[in-house]
C-alpha cells in the first residue's frame, strides 16, 4: 500500500503541488542568479492551468487523474517584449515569497492529512 492509497486524492494533489512549488523555486532562483547575464530570458513555471485542465477532463474530484500532471518550464511570455526581456529582481523576489508561502501552506495541508490518519489509526482516541 503506497502513500497515495493511504492519503487518497487529497494526498496525491498535495504531492503534485509540492513538487510544482519546489520546481518553481529552482526556476526563480535560476532567474535571480542570472539577473545580470546578457541575453538571458527568465523562465516561468506553468502548473495550475495544466492541473485545472486535467481536473476538467477527468472530473475535479475524480479518484485519479488519467495522466500525470507535471510542471512545465516555459520562457517568460512577457520577455517577448524587448523592453521586458530582462530579469526584474523585485518581481522575482515577490514571486519567490509567494511561492515559499504556498509551499508552507501545502506542508500544513499534508500535515493535517497525516493528523487525520493518526486519529483513524488510534481509533478516535486522542
Amino acid at each position: 500500500m503506497g502513500l497515495t492509497e493511504l492519503t487518497g486524492v487529497t494526498g496525491a494533489m498535495l504531492k503534485l503541488a509540492l513538487d510544482a512549488a519546489s520546481v518553481r523555486h529552482m526556476v526563480i532562483a535560476n532567474n535571480i542568479a542570472n539577473a545580470n547575464t546578457p541575453d538571458f530570458v527568465p523562465s516561468r513555471v506553468e502548473f495550475e492551468e495544466h492541473l485545472a485542465a486535467a481536473a476538467a477532463r477527468d472530473g475535479a474530484y475524480g479518484a485519479r487523474l488519467t495522466r500525470p500532471v507535471s510542471p512545465v518550464i516555459v520562457p517568460d511570455p512577457q520577455a517577448l517584449d524587448p523592453v521586458q526581456a530582462r530579469v526584474q529582481l523585485d518581481v522575482e523576489v515577490a514571486q519567490l515569497s509567494q511561492n515559499t508561502l504556498q509551499y508552507q501552506a501545502l506542508t500544513r495541508g499534508v500535515r493535517a492529512r497525516m493528523d487525520m490518519l493518526q486519529t483513524v489509526i488510534g481509533g478516535g482516541n486522542p
Binding site: 523555486h25 526563480i28 532562483a29 535571480i32 542568479a33 539577473a35 529582481l89 522575482e92 523576489v93 519567490l96 515569497s97 511561492n99 515559499t100
Partner: peptide, 9 residues
C-alpha cells in the same frame, strides 16, 4: 537577492 532565494530554500 540570491541570499533571499537561498534563505527561502
Amino acid at each position: 537577492a540570491n541570499v533571499v532565494a537561498l534563505n527561502a530554500a
